[in-house]
Design a protein around this nucleic acid. Structure first.
Length: 844
RNA sequence: GCCGAUGUGGCGAAAUGGCAGACGCAACGGACUUAAAAUCCGUUGGGCUUAAACGGCCCGUGCCGGUUCGAGUCCGGCCAUCGGCACCA
């Protein structure tokens, strides 16, 4: 292929400006207290989700959100804001470590190389990050504070009286270890044999690991947990005040999964044992005709009769051998076994059988349910299969009561007969509480956060063990760096790789270090705070810096956060949790980390499929830049369609946008005889024609409003209209160009900087300019075109004076020959006049 | 199954309840050129009417219905695609 002629010399001007921005530290932003800080300016904190620097480099999905935020950042600077727009690296994590296991190369080396590559790629796109604030979660100066925050959680508890996180010393009781926000528990966990580690619920998708797609099984292990459930209500309630996409809020809401109901006690068996069940429908208590325990429920052994024991044991073994995926397969038939035992229904004194079945989950509620087959689909299916009694206790408004699961009127329930379900629930709970047989209860689907991993490439826990109990390192002992290892391979039996570092583990004669590491999410839980004050060695973030950048707005926090939806219930929930704990403990000034969140849509390959190496449809931004330049890449990504929408890539589309930028170039520049570019003779100090003035101000208005509303695609359309309007003008007014180039600057910063320098007006560089105001009066014309409709169909158009009254317009329209023709022999029933827009004649 | 988002030309898309398809891509025609590329100009939702042009008419925003002088936009019901959750009592 012959060398394609460059549409304009972007390959010369882009590196030039990138170099200049770096040398002059154009985008460096100061903190309060630093020399040169201007407190009179408003602040704006605009943040991208920082990337995991993977080995495959940047793909075109990354710059989508990054370009959007960069446009806003540059726009806000031109509007006089102090703009915090940082970038960093979320660099602990599985891929680097998997690579290390395969090649023996230390993850720190891989990570360093990948970071360098990512940074070069990002800088080629011309993003206006303040690189002096760059952070890396694997840097000891960073993870020192990740460990420090962990210690704050370890030294804190959630006080149910104040509903606040408080230092552990406000806890009055014997077992502080049972209330700490960071605690150790032996719980059934998601164990991934292939990865040799446990995973959080959020990291398991359809029974497989999110990273790698390996099978995950349940097994009990001793693990570090974070008590996120203590803040469940706060995390739920305070979602309301956030300016986030509705769908993300809903996702978090469902993930937290609050249900109100009651815990009810059923007694029975040989030793009068108690089975507690959780139900959201205590009003159906009289309809509970049997009890189901999860197969793993500890009381099963207590209750099972000797006759039923073999069958029960066999069933439990069978269930244990199943993967989560097999267990939750909805299409499968219900299974279960009778235990041979009974308990008493506290409402009516009836003896009802106890079954075990895997449709009851040991991890939710109390791991036991009262089955009300008449008013619960699952219970009904089970009851029909095993021929258990079905008793109607709720009357539906219409239709068949059996199988009706909604609210109705209680019946066959002496204590609450005739009450609507909601009232019946209240009454029965009050009665249960009186009798001490049960109580109001709230349950969540949200589980505590399983916080430890049996991996090498993560933050070590600042914890030591002595005589079987744990204690915290002193803050002065941080950072605690991981030991140097040659062999990162997980043992496969749950023993972390750190256990191999015998010298490192040994803390003292009798104490040894915790060998688990923190999960990938730890570093990203608070990085947005560190950006406010990234070089502070005395505190995780300086108080003044934190207050300055995080304050403002309703709940406060980062002013605008842009990233993908994939973190809806992971990073975005975890970060809120840490932030609230830090807020309660007085370390940060706002209750929420991210005031406004926007999700960019996925970019698909040219074939309309998700980009993937295996499909071979991945677009590398470097290639796009080589061919069309960074400004074309930026503008194309914004021109493709609405930011939040999923949309396919098109190289032809990039070409079209590159053509537009080349037209801008040639509006200002022309080639001389020798083939060199020079300022075009068409650029002149002349006044704008009326039509030119109108399109200029329409463009200022549209671009300004569209940036504010993140409608970048239509902003670019309008700039194209502007350029089209001037393309054939014999003279291009310098002042119009200058204004236009400022509008273009956030989108195509290199091109616009270069051309502004060429036309040589104004004080210095574009970054020192001010965003132009628009003059509404320049947009109004003396005449407007009125659409004439008859019965809602366009039949004619007419130009009328802007000052014409409704009556005058009506008269003019009725006098039109075309209208006369259409009205012949008909009666005008009604005339609708929309000022400056249209007239609709209703005739028959 | 439940929840959410989306559905407009050949394609990406645009339209405070008021001319559907701005802007761009692709395609076609023209100018420039020895030629090509590049550039510039023009046409481009479907159909009918007309010898042709101008003009005119009808249909058209997933489907069915409603509200309204007027609906891509609002309301009700369906269908399809994508995403999330999925025995959570």
């Amino acid at each position: 292929m012959s060398e394609r002629r460059k549409p304009y010399p972007f390959d010369a001007i882009e590196p030039k400006w990138q170099r200049r921005w770096e040398e002059e530290q154009t985008f460096r932003v100061l903190n309060p207290g630093q020399t040169g800080f201007d407190p009179t300016r408003p602040k704006f904190y605009i943040l991208d989700m920082f990337p995991y620097p993977s080995g495959s480099g940047l793909h075109v999905g990354h710059p989508e959100g990054y370009t959007a935020t960069d446009i806003i950042a540059r726009y806000k600077r031109l509007r006089g804001y102090n703009v915090l727009h940082p970038m960093g690296w979320d660099a602990f994590g599985l891929p680097a470590e998997q690579y290390a296991v395969k090649t023996g190369q230390h993850p720190a080396v891989t990570t360093r190389e990948n970071v360098t590559r990512f940074k070069v790629q990002l800088q080629r796109i011309g993003f206006s990050y303040d690189w002096s604030r760059e952070i890396n979660t694997t840097d000891p100066r960073y993870f020192r504070w990740t460990q420090w925050i962990f210690l704050q959680l370890y030294h804190a508890w959630f006080n149910p009286e104040t509903q606040r996180v408080e230092p552990i010393n406000t806890y009055i009781g014997d077992s502080p270890d049972e209330v700490r926000l960071a605690y150790v528990a032996n719980v059934p966990v998601n164990w991934c044999p292939e990865l040799g580690t446990v995973l959080a619920n959020e990291e398991v998708i359809d029974g497989k690991s999110e990273v790698g797609g390996f099978p995950v099984v349940r097994r009990p292990m001793r693990q570090w947990m974070l008590r996120i459930t203590a803040l469940a209500d706060r995390l739920l309630d305070e979602l309301k005040g956030l300016d986030w996409p509705h769908s993300i809020k809903l996702l978090q809401q469902k993930w937290i999964g609050r249900s109100e109901g009651a815990e009810i006690e059923f007694r029975g068996g040989n030793r009068d044992e108690v089975i507690r069940v959780f139900t959201t429908r205590p009003d159906t208590l009289y309809g509970a005709t049997y009890i189901v325990l999860a197969p793993e429920h500890p009381l099963v052994d207590e209750f099972v009769s000797s006759a039923q024991r073999p069958e029960v044991e066999q069933y439990r073994a069978q269930v244990a051998s199943k993967s989560d995926l097999e267990r939750t397969d909805l299409s499968k038939e219900k299974t279960g076994v009778f235990t041979g035992a009974h308990v008493v229904n506290p409402a009516n004194g009836e003896k009802i059988p106890i079954w075990i079945a895997d449709y009851v989950l040991v991890t939710y509620g109390t791991g036991a349910i009262m089955a009300v087959p008449a008013h619960d689909e699952r219970d009904l299916e089970f009851a029909r299969k095993f021929d258990l009694p079905v008793r109607e206790v709720v009357q539906p408004p219409t239709g068949n009561a059996i199988g009706f699961v909604g609210d109705g009127i209680a019946n066959n329930s002496p204590l609450i007969d005739g009450l609507p379900s909601a009232a019946a629930r209240h009454r029965i709970i009050a009665w249960l509480e009186e009798q001490n047989l049960g109580r109001r209860n709230v349950r969540y689907k949200l589980r505590d956060w399983l916080f430890s991993r049996q991996r090498y490439w993560g933050e070590p826990f600042p914890i030591v063990w002595e005589d079987g109990s744990h204690r915290a390192l002193a803050e002065s002992e941080l950072p605690l760096a991981p030991p140097l290892l040659d062999d990162f391979k997980p043992s496969g039996d749950g023993e972390p790789p750190l256990a191999k570092a015998k010298d490192w583990i040994r803390y003292s004669e009798r104490a040894h270090r915790e060998t688990n590491t923190m999960p990938q999410w730890a570093g990203s839980c608070w990085y947005y705070l560190r950006f406010c004050d990234p070089r502070n060695d005395a505190r995780f973030v300086g108080e003044e810096a934190e207050r300055y950048w995080m304050s403002g707005g309703k709940p406060g926090g980062v002013d605008l956060y842009v990233g993908g939806t994939e973190h809806a219930v992971l990073h975005l929930l975890y970060a809120r949790f840490w932030h609230k704990a830090l807020f309660d403990l007085g370390y940060v000034s706002t209750p929420e980390p991210f005031q406004r969140l926007v999700n960019q849509g996925l970019i698909l390959g040219e074939d309309g499929q998700k980009m993937s190496k295996s499909r071979g449809n991945v677009v590398n931004p470097d290639e796009v830049i080589d061919q069309y330049g960074a400004d074309a890449l930026r503008c194309y990504e914004m021109f493709m369609g609405p930011l939040e929408q999923m949309k396919p890539w098109s190289m032809r589309g990039v070409e079209g946008v590159a053509r537009f930028l080349a037209r801008v170039w040639r509006l200002v520049m022309e080639e001389n005889q020798a083939g060199a570019w020079q300022l075009s003779a068409r650029v002149q100090d002349v006044a704008l024609e009326v039509a030119q003035e109108k399109v200029l101000h329409a463009t200022i208005k549209k671009v300004t409003e569209d940036i504010e509303s993140l409608s970048f695609n239509t902003a670019i359309s309008q700039m194209m209209i502007f350029v089209n309007a001037f393309t054939n003008a014999p003279a291009v007014p310098r002042i119009a160009l200058q204004t236009f180039l400022i509008l273009l600057n956030p989108f195509a910063p290199h091109l616009s900087s270069e051309l502004l320098e060429e036309i040589g007006t104004g004080p210095g560089e574009i970054t020192a300019q001010a965003w132009p105001p628009f003059d509404e009066s320049k947009l109004v014309e003396r005449e407007v075109e009125i659409v004439v409709q008859v019965n809602g169909k366009v039949r004619d158009k007419i130009r009328v004076s802007l000052t014409a009254s409704e009556d005058e317009v009506r008269a003019l329209v009725l006098a039109l020959p075309r209208v006369q023709e259409l009205l012949a022999g008909k009666t005008v029933r009604k005339v609708v006049v929309v000022p400056k827009k249209l007239v609709n004649l209703v005739v028959s």
